[in-house]
């Protein structure tokens, strides 16, 4: 089976330009509503490996998203977007520097799994 997936990055133009050179697909989004729309669109994209079988799989395995935008996406949209095995949606810090959102996200996962954030920084 062909097992190739693409990688996408969503963010404003200045932040994502550098990633473009690496061969990632870049999607421009300037605010959270735009980003949400773009994410849904990316998620919908599928590849059909074998026409006869008609099996489709997501085209993208990983979608990076600039933190500033990721923070403002509503919980419900985020849940819909990330419920499947693929793609993985990963927030990355913007050129302005990290806001701690990524670590907070990990804390949330712990909270969800264990019941309380046991690694949380006091």
């Amino acid at each position: 089976m062909n097992n190739k997936f693409k990688i996408a990055i969503v963010g404003n133009k200045d932040s994502i330009l550098g990633f473009k050179a690496l061969g990632l697909d870049t999607y421009n989004a300037n605010d959270a509503t735009e980003a949400t729309a773009v994410l849904y669109e990316i998620k919908k994209k599928e590849v059909v490996d074998d026409e006869r079988l008609g099996e489709a799989r997501p085209a993208y395995a990983v979608i990076f998203i600039i933190e500033d935008l990721a923070m403002k996406i509503s919980e419900e949209d985020y849940k819909n977007l990330s419920e499947d095995a693929l793609p993985a949606i990963v927030p990355v810090p913007s050129p302005k520097g990290t806001s701690g959102y990524g670590l907070k996200r990990i804390g949330k996962m712990v909270e969800r799994a264990v019941g309380s954030d046991i690694f949380g920084d006091k």
Partner: peptide, 19 residues
Amino acid sequence: MLETALLYPSATTELEVET
């Protein structure tokens, strides 16, 4: 200039996924 330089990347990046 910067944008033109990066407009058509020749590098391609793909992922193989195993579960």
